[in-house]
């Protein structure tokens, strides 16, 4: 019995694992929280695009020897705001414009790392995430963004709800919709920035979409979605990270697979009610 318990707690003996699981759990909760807006606004393609854009910033800051959070942060927030404006103004096809802007940024990142970086290792770490590189600064950064997001969303709850549900009437009723959207894109960019090192560019959009979709199947209330989704995100991240140690698989992939398993179970258990609720979500 003692051996079994000792075996189960083995990963927690390593500092790198503890750092990784803390960041992953907070990241899961944070992505779950912002994922509610991503899913209800039908913006999952923006989450996907933003992570690709931030990759470009991360590569550029690595090559230019600029602090990751500063370089990729400025790049990511700027991309987020630009993407938000393109999507809102509908000047050109939003999907196409976002596709071009973000994949160009991604391609630039790849090219820069190929040309100047220690190519293969750093590319893999950014694409698929790595728990080995998680430092105390990452824990501080993800916690700070999580606290900031919670404070902003609680303080401006109704404005966020109104602007998400009915932006036109919200605008007429005095809500500064453009400002709310810019704020949301800024938070989304920051979230991707601080979680990317653990989850990786390629899988982060799944962490934005899966917990919120599961929460949507479980409830018909926006307010309840806002706490159910972070819990699901945190549980899948913690469980996935923990299992990855024993399965010897990529942490980010195991996290997403855990989330997907939860999705399948909830989809089966909630039956027609859950399926009806989720059928109205766009771009999933």
């Amino acid at each position: 019995m003692i051996h079994v318990v000792a075996g189960l707690t083995t990963p927690f003996r390593y500092q790198f694992f503890n750092n990784g699981i803390i960041v992953a759990t907070i990241a899961g909760a944070l992505c779950g929280l912002l994922g509610v807006f991503v899913v209800l606004r039908g913006m999952s393609y923006i989450g996907h695009g933003l992570s690709h854009a931030v990759f470009g910033g991360a590569a550029a800051s690595a090559v230019m020897n600029i602090n990751y959070f500063v370089g990729a942060g400025v790049w990511g927030v700027a991309s987020g705001v630009i993407i938000g404006r393109i999507a809102r103004r509908r000047l050109i096809g939003a999907d196409a414009a976002i596709g071009v802007v973000t994949t160009a940024s991604f391609a630039l990142g790849l090219a820069l790392l190929n040309r100047y970086g220690q190519a293969k290792k750093s590319i893999e770490a950014v694409l698929f995430g790595s728990v080995l590189g998680v430092k105390t600064i990452d824990i501080i950064a993800v916690s700070a963004v999580a606290i900031l997001s919670v404070v902003i969303i609680v303080a401006l709850y109704r404005a966020f709800l109104f602007a998400t549900f009915d932006p036109e009437v919200a605008e007429v009723s005095g809500v500064r919709v453009a400002w709310i959207e810019a704020l949301l894109m800024g938070l989304l960019s920051l979230t991707i920035l601080v979680t990317m090192r653990v989850i990786g560019t390629l899988l982060i959009s799944a962490l934005l979409v899966i917990p919120a979709s599961v929460a949507r199947m479980l409830t018909n209330s926006f307010a309840r979605m806002l706490w159910i989704s972070p819990i699901i995100g945190a549980v899948s991240a913690f469980t996935g990270m923990y299992l990855s140690y024993f399965l010897d698989t990529s942490a980010s992939a195991t996290i997403i697979l855990t989330g997907t398993l939860m999705f399948i179970v909830v989809y089966a258990v909630t039956g027609i009610r859950g399926r009806t609720r989720i059928s109205g979500l766009h771009h999933i």
Binding site: V154, A155, L156, Y157, R158, A159, L161, F162, F165, D166, A170, S173, G174, V175, A223
Partner: peptide, 10 residues
């Protein structure tokens, strides 16, 4: 919802 500018909290 329409009191978003005055009623801020959930």
């Amino acid at each position: 919802m329409t009191r978003s500018s005055t009623g801020r909290l959930p």
